[in-house]
Design a protein around this nucleic acid. Structure first.
Lengths: 191, 191, 191, 191
DNA sequence: GATGAATGAGCTTTCATTCAT
DNA sequence: CATGAATGAAAGCTCATTCAT
């Protein structure tokens, strides 16, 4: 059944995101998924391949979430950021997975490639949203949409990182509000 | 001799920063350091303790570098950032080490504590530089120096991360110049 | 297959009884059993657990042997003791295992518990034999059967110990005959 | 100074008697003795030699204790045994050391030799006490003094063993009283 | 599809011992 | 006399992977 495949992917995602790729073991994954070791090797030829498939799943979910976010106006963006930060504080798992994804990208060329595609897609998605807003006249037509998208992505990404390690010197909400008010607002048309 | 201790620390730093904490093995470290396994365990009671000592060493070096950087004026800051980016592209080791430091901070409470101290100190150092500039009249007296320090640190840190994974969608130089010209310049007094 | 499990138990019993728990190594056991290290850890989660399972096996065998011994009359008991001493002199392995079992019981609470159960069962077995003899009128009806059982067990156990270290000042046969003639005979009914 | 030598012997005795020979490590001994590793190897050429010297020390102390015990009459012997059992219940260290001594005697020929000498001397000491009592007319002149000495030694030794593992099926006091009243009394002259 | 027995390399760590100082 | 740095073999154990069933 395809059920087994999905059970493995989900269990693997959980273990990878709590332990990191290296420390995660096939044994823990099989226990979490409640399948046999053989079942895992039936669907995935190695731990690395399993990780790559989990990355695919993660990236797909991530893109989906991103796609469904609406950026109607500057005020809403500020609100959304704060909600997103709140979410992060509750669920640090995704951020753990992401940071390990970065680390593995440094150590493994295949993963580096996937990371690049992931970044490209994420930024393209944000850029598209910005372009839609340009068409609606919300955002200034003369700006470099790609650079703005990069900026937004990098800002959210780095905030998430500091949240996930409970860095108490870094104040994500303040940085976010500052970012929106002192930076983003310049690209929005006054209404 | 203290020589052996330092040889181990330096070799460990190299191995940890190329392989990450989990994948790094005492065997590889001993080979790199050209010492015996026993020598490592003579100085460090476990792999974890060795890592903690390497962190200390890393943080000390990092603070030293930070302290010696001069921020005379906005133009120079822009230049310095670009040089720093160039350096990073050549030597990705430190950034790899830093990202693994983040990951380990998520998985291990002792390391999380050290990470917090590291962030506090780094931001305090930057804040001091900004205060000096305020006294010299270079920077606006009314700004929140701590938030600005956070901002600078977070920006440099996240750029370093994307550099180290050769993320080609992210253009660190452009983001840096944009950051200086559209954000930092507001805090500087016009001359 | 169950075969492997048994091969490991038997090899482990041999190594444990010739080297003692601490000196016995998984490597020696795996070589003796002709299995891989992984196979051992597939069946037993640690060296300690393996030892506990070997204890189980040993205790089962011991109880079996005890149960099959017949104590028809005083004369036969004296004979049986001598045969048993002769057996011991030839095969010191069991006694070595037993003495190490005692030592480990002092150092490890789990083993101490097992030792207690082992002693209880052994003494209960002997006590039952004595009660049967009471019913047949061979043994005096008024004696404390439990104390007598303790006495017999302790005597045999301590003799075995001195045999296994080839203590030449201790004469097990003489002590045994003395025990039967000067102590046991008082509990038997004259015929 | 000779002080160091003695500090090592005493620390080694403590560690050997709490951990057993195999598990005891030179490191733990040096920490307990508060001396350097080199100091240990200055006085003892190996762990084995150290153990042999500790055995010497132990045997000397044991003989001393034995020698100072007085056996004036049967009633006192019974009392003494009970006191001795009480002592054992409080301090199990010596018994632990003794049982490990037995185990090591099975595994190592040098230790086996020492064990034999130890047993010979202990039994000889007891035998001498019995002979003194014979001369005083307390004990029957026609008995086999050596066998009686063996009997007493074996009984006390085995009781100590069961005490040290907290064997709750074995009742040392009852066994001792039984031993005195049903066995020993036959060898004493009526008064 | 799925199981889990089995492998063996490699892991971290301990340890008795040596030796220059 | 005494130190403690250094060694390297061997310990218990983990783990990704293979494969017969």
């Amino acid at each position: 059944m395809e059920e087994t495949y999905e059970k493995i992917i989900k269990a693997a995602y959980e273990i990878f995101s709590t332990e990191g790729y290296q420390k995660a073991s096939i044994n823990k994954i099989k226990d979490k998924a409640n399948v046999s070791k053989g079942a895992i090797y039936h669907y995935f030829k190695s731990k690395e391949e399993l990780y790559l498939k989990v990355l695919e799943y993660f990236i797909f979910e991530f893109a989906n979430t991103l796609e469904n976010i609406e950026f109607p106006d500057l005020y809403k963006i500020r609100e959304l950021g704060l909600i997103y930060i709140e979410e992060y504080k509750k669920n640090k798992q995704m951020q753990k997975f992401l940071i390990d994804f970065f680390l593995q990208a440094m150590l493994n060329k295949k993963i580096k490639k996937i990371m690049n595609v992931f970044l490209e897609n994420s930024i393209a998605l944000i850029e598209n949203k910005i372009k839609e807003m340009q068409e609606k006249g919300i955002v200034d037509k003369n700006i470099n949409t790609n650079l703005l998208a990069q900026k937004i992505f990098v800002t959210l990404d780095s905030l998430g990182m500091y949240i996930s390690i409970d860095a108490n010197v870094i104040k994500p909400e303040k940085l976010w509000i500052d970012f929106v008010d002192n930076y983003l607002k310049d690209f929005f048309n006054a209404n």
